[in-house]
């Protein structure tokens, strides 16, 4: 558990061109089985730890990843989740990109509304994941799959 007070973590090393977002590390995971959902959570957790996120931010990002990956698995017929550690002006972030080639979403705005569900969840998946992340974008066309990109920036003792 991280306390709000106490020791300060080492500042992430600042290298490269500042003021510019650039991927430093990127891994792609398939999301085609239930086991994959578990693996994805572990991989995302590991990435948030590497990025120096506090325990609450870790939980936010892993939960968002779980929601997005499940969406791709249940509605998109499987897909991929890419984890990137990104930098912007001295801040580290985790960017998740979840892609599937499923039926797509015809009304993205409606899908982002709480309570919207076509499956067994609570209908908080997409909208909830958006609230857990800082930047969030959905690209989808009926019949052409869905791409969700979501980033959370480091807020703890940067």
């Amino acid at each position: 558990m991280t306390r709000a007070d106490g020791h300060t973590a080492a500042a992430p090393r600042t290298t490269g061109v500042p003021g510019q977002t650039r991927p430093q590390d990127s891994t792609t995971h398939t999301v085609c089985t239930e086991e994959d959902l578990l693996h994805v959570r572990h991989a995302v957790r590991a990435a948030t730890v590497l990025a120096g996120f506090g325990i609450v931010d870790q939980t936010r990002v892993v939960t968002a990843a779980s929601e997005l990956a499940r969406n791709a698995y249940v509605h998109g017929g499987g897909g991929t989740l890419t984890i990137e550690i990104v930098r912007r002006l001295g801040t580290t972030g985790i960017r998740l990109t979840v892609e599937d080639e499923g039926p797509g979403i015809s009304d993205v705005d409606a899908a982002l509304t709480d309570g919207f569900t076509t499956g067994a969840g609570l209908g908080h998946g997409l909208g909830g994941a958006r609230r857990l992340m800082d930047d969030f974008a959905v690209r989808s066309e009926p019949g052409r799959g869905t791409v969700v990109t979501a980033t959370r920036w480091h807020t703890r003792r940067a």
Binding site: A4, D5, V17, G19, L89, R156, R157
Partner: peptide, 24 residues
């Protein structure tokens, strides 16, 4: 040029940390 950018970035980082500490 790099040094200047990093300097600004470093100061911003300090401001961010301080405002966070103030909040805490």
């Amino acid at each position: 040029a790099l040094s200047f950018e990093v300097y600004v970035e470093g100061r911003e980082e300090i401001i961010r940390r301080q405002s966070r500490q103030l909040l805490e």
